[in-house]
């Protein structure tokens, strides 16, 4: 009978030591909403589970002069209850809060959603669009990694053995900057995104877009930052021509698969639709600032 060990270290060094010292597979447990499903189905068979939730600061949200620090294991529910974060990053919060049910929200964390490394992860596009940085700790010390560089392939991350994410940093939004996230699912809840789209926009005083980041989920092996889509709307007031160019750029960036959740054709078309709709929401939010 294979034996599994469990540890709940109370400090970063202890956690690193455990993770780095494991002979076989060691998994980090934060919210557990993906890990427990994988354990039960036998898709992952670790020899060690390191529960990071006892590490001080890994749960919670702090507002700093530079922006926000979100503990890696902070649950979606807590993120959704933080009024300052909701005001500053409505798109990041709505993406995070779309992960699973209310029950899943009680546990699911940003680090878990990211490190599960699914192209369909709902919190990731808006985090990337926001320029979020993951603080990674490990045997070789601490490094700050843009969120977009964590996932390298479905189910695979750039984290080395012994490394885990401690927290996320979100920059302080500029004046007239805001974001939005939309996903498409066949039901109203409880599905994995068929396509997801995060949009972060900055406007000038006249409502002209000065900066934009459009990130698509579930249309390629990893999240896609669509630079052509950003170019298509920068310098515009998101008029119909800009929206059409945005739609086309988003579709052109898709490299999806056909699976039980959607076809190539469907995903591609929806990517354009969501990019337009999310951009409009982000534009209105930024304009209202």
């Amino acid at each position: 009978m294979p034996r599994l060990s469990y540890a709940a270290p109370a400090s970063v060094p202890d956690a690193i030591k455990l993770l780095a010292g494991a002979e076989g597979l060691a998994k980090v447990l934060s919210g557990g909403t993906d890990l427990l499903v994988q354990l039960r189905s036998g898709r992952t068979r670790p020899e060690l589970i390191v529960d990071t939730k006892k590490i001080p600061g890994i749960i919670g949200i702090r507002e700093t002069e530079d922006g926000f620090v979100i503990g890696a294991a902070t649950s979606g529910a807590e993120i959704g209850e933080n009024a300052a974060l909701v005001a500053a990053y409505p798109g990041v919060v709505e993406g995070t809060n779309l992960i699973g049910s209310t029950q899943v929200q009680g546990r699911a964390s940003l680090a878990g959603n990211l490190c599960n490394a699914s192209p369909a992860a709902d919190s990731v596009p808006a985090l990337i669009a926001a320029g979020a940085v993951a603080v990674v700790v490990g045997p070789n010390g601490q490094r700050n990694v843009p969120v977009g560089q964590i996932v390298i392939a479905p189910g695979r991350t750039s984290l080395a053995k012994g490394e885990f994410i401690l927290e996320f940093h979100l920059p302080k939004p500029k004046a007239k900057q805001s974001d939005a996230y939309l996903r498409f699912i066949p039901r109203t809840e409880m599905d994995i995104a068929v396509v997801g789209c995060g949009v972060n926009l900055t406007l000038d005083a006249n409502g002209v877009i000065t900066a934009a980041c459009i990130v698509l989920g579930a249309v390629a092996p990893t999240q896609v930052v669509v630079e052509a889509a950003a170019k298509a709307i920068i310098g515009t007031k998101l008029d119909d021509a800009a929206l059409a160019a945005l739609d086309a750029a988003a579709r052109a960036a898709c490299n999806p698969i056909t699976d039980k959740r959607g076809t190539i054709e469907f995903r591609t078309k929806i990517a354009g639709v969501l990019a337009r709709r999310a951009a409009k929401i982000a534009y209105d939010r930024a304009g209202a600032r």
Binding site: Y6, L29, G32, T33, L36, V37, R40, S41, I49, D51, S75, A77, G100, S101, T102, Q103, V104, G106, R107, M190
Partner: peptide
């Protein structure tokens, strides 16, 4: 697998699926 909610409990006052908690 956390998809049906029949195992719902509260953990420190927070609603969770007990099948997704060790």
């Amino acid at each position: 697998s956390g998809d049906c909610g029949a195992c719902s409990i509260t953990l420190d006052g927070r609603l969770v699926c007990s099948c997704l908690v060790l």
